[in-house]
Nucleic acid binder design. Structure first.
Lengths: 120, 120
DNA sequence: AACAGTACTAACCTTTTTGTAAGTATGGAA
DNA sequence: TTCCATACTTACAAAAAGGTTAGTACTGTT
């Protein structure tokens, strides 16, 4: 029986790479919204409760920088800019799907009141 | 035609739940190591470069708290304690697998030194 | 001339996360 | 009696992440 290939946990291991790209409080939520359709800045803001304009634009810039999201400027006045998931960005979708599955498993198996986590 | 079921992005949406459980710099790396076999504190420390003892024990506690990891105290002297992934913790493994796939796709498609950020 | 709509930008601040360095407890071996 | 191994614990500091508030630029509309 062969032993599984153990990937070394280093600065450039796949887990760390992925965490760098989509870690943080907002990036996945932005990606998730853009997965449905291209969206304008203001539309994104409405769809993601509590995100500040600063965080939204900041995280969009990071996502654009890493080429997961594309920015389309329509050059109109008043400004019209759309954001959409790039082809590479779409590779995050199976990951998001697994996160959803995991959360479902977890919340169905764990008593929701056993945790003292006042998130709101 | 039916529209896709859009999960609302709220304080209790699956993405946020998952991020709370396994977000941060170290949790997934710990889980990944424990996926192979139960490990002692000192073994984990050796396998995860640069993690401090403080972060290791702190994150282990959080993972135990959320029941993704189990702690087994052998009650010996010098102390012997083993950590292993719980059954629920194993539900993170497909997620980790997807992260690995994503990182591979990403690094194979993106030139590491290019940036097309229109802001720069 | 003031205002509306959109997509930002900037200064400043608070909170959260992570890191460093040292110390504790235990019982047996030297 | 001192030291060793192991698994922590504590106080403090630094860094990163996130939040608040106000303001800019551009034109067309009132």
């Amino acid at each position: 029986m062969e032993s599984p290939v153990q990937i070394e946990v280093t600065a450039r291991c796949p887990i760390r790479t992925t965490l760098e790209l989509i870690g943080g409080k907002w990036k996945l939520l932005i990606i998730y919204q853009l997965a449905q359709q291209p969206l304008r800045f203001s539309a994104l803001k409405k769809l993601i409760p509590n995100i500040s304009e600063k965080m939204l634009i900041q995280e969009l810039k990071v996502l654009i920088d890493s080429q997961l999201v594309e920015r389309v400027n329509f050059g109109e006045v008043p400004p019209k800019v759309e954001y959409n998931l790039s082809e590479i960005g779409r590779f995050t979708l199976p990951l998001i799907a697994e996160m959803q599955k995991f959360a479902q498993h977890y919340t169905s198996k764990i008593d929701p009141h056993s945790s003292t986590n006042p998130y709101e």
